Computed example of a mutant assay.
Amino acid sequence: MKNNNPSKEKKSMNPMHRARVRIALAIAALLAAPSLAHAQAADWPNKPVRIVVPFAPGGGSDFIARYIARRLSEELKQPFIVENKPGAGGNIGAEQGIKSPPDGYTLTLIASSYTVNPSVYKINFDPVADMTPIVQISQGPLLIVVNPNVAAKTLGELVALAKAKPNEIYFASSGSGSIVHAASEYFNLKAGTKMTHVPYKGSGPAMTDTIAGQTQVFFSSASTAMPQINAGKLRVLAVTTSKRIPALPNTPTVIEAGVPGYDVTLWHGLIGPKGMPPEIVNKINAAVVKALKLKETEDQLQNDGVAPAGGTPQQFGTTIKTEIEMWRKVVADASIKAD
């Protein structure tokens, strides 16, 4: 006789059989997932992509983000929209970007301060494990500049002066716990000097007081310092990168000037949330690297005092990991704290 009660059939199903069905369904889902992800990646982007910038509009990070967004929009045929989310040294915007879905529709532009922040702020994400590196966009030095009245024409003379007058030479920074503060304290450690830190709320006031002679030394971005150097209001002693820069061919690196092992680079790059499909990561990387090879890109970045970078996602990831460890030691050794 036919059983017209489906619930009886369901109840009478062997428990082992039910377990096998569940396992089979789970395996089917796992097998289907890569195909679905591949299909989504192949179709990406099919809607606007946002680039979270963890800094205020109008600065160097914002400029670079908007330039790259325009290039990506042209290359990938979808709008790339910049959203500024400043605060907490860049941590608010970085966290928002990193905690977005890993579908390629939210990217985050980070700066080299991203690798300092984990050591000076309490952050709510893992700066390595919770993100996907995509591409390094730019690279450039800080310029070590002094007020013209400082009795040091070379970096070696500044080191000698600072050692002769411990704690009497004052260096400005854009804020406690900033990349400028960390780079300056790193110099103290490497050179064996004891210059005294004076924090400001931003590079503008720090520059103003260095020109006025309230502070004597400032580790400045090239875009901020070059007009003042050209006007004779500041003297440049060295660049912090391991190589000289075209804009200042006669200015030595810190290493050349007698402080071995000192190398600090300012950079910008794109990251995404962890778990982004490699196909999407590689597509963005290729589009950015293509843009970085353009003469227009070189000229635009040079206006901000930096040069194109490029490279693979893996290379950018290695840079981030290496610098996080380097700054962790510097912050501990110099007792650096954020505002």
Rank of each mutant, 00 (worst) to 15 (best):
L158M: 06
V159Y: 05
A160Y: 05
L161F: 01
L161S: 00
L161K: 04
A162T: 07
A162C: 04
A162Q: 04
K163W: 01
A164P: 09
A164G: 03
K165Y: 03
K165M: 14
N167C: 04
E168W: 09
E168N: 03
I169K: 11
I169W: 07
I169N: 00
I169H: 01
Y170G: 12
F171Q: 06
A172H: 00
A172W: 05
S173F: 02
S173D: 13
S173P: 10
S173L: 05
S176W: 01
S176N: 06
G177E: 12
G177T: 11
S178A: 13
I179G: 14
I179S: 10
A182E: 12
A183W: 08
A183H: 00
S184M: 04
S184R: 07
S184E: 09
E185K: 08
E185G: 03
E185V: 06
Y186V: 07
Y186M: 09
N188C: 07
N188K: 07
L189C: 09
L189N: 00
A191H: 05
A191K: 11
G192Q: 02
G192D: 01
G192M: 09
T193K: 10
T193V: 15
K194L: 02
M195T: 14
M195D: 00
M195S: 01
M195Q: 11
H197G: 05
P199K: 08
K201N: 13
G202C: 11
S203G: 15
S203Y: 15
G204Q: 04
G204V: 11
A206L: 05
A206S: 07
M207C: 00
M207R: 00
D209Q: 05
T210P: 01
T210W: 07
T210L: 13
I211D: 11
I211T: 10
I211N: 02
A212F: 11
A212E: 13
G213D: 01
G213N: 00
Q214C: 09
Q214Y: 03
Q214H: 13
Q216L: 06
V217F: 15
F219Y: 12
F219S: 12
S221F: 13
S223T: 14
S223M: 14
T224F: 07
T224I: 02
T224L: 01
T224D: 03
M226Q: 14
P227V: 02
Q228G: 08
Q228R: 02
Q228A: 10
I229S: 07
I229C: 15
N230Y: 10
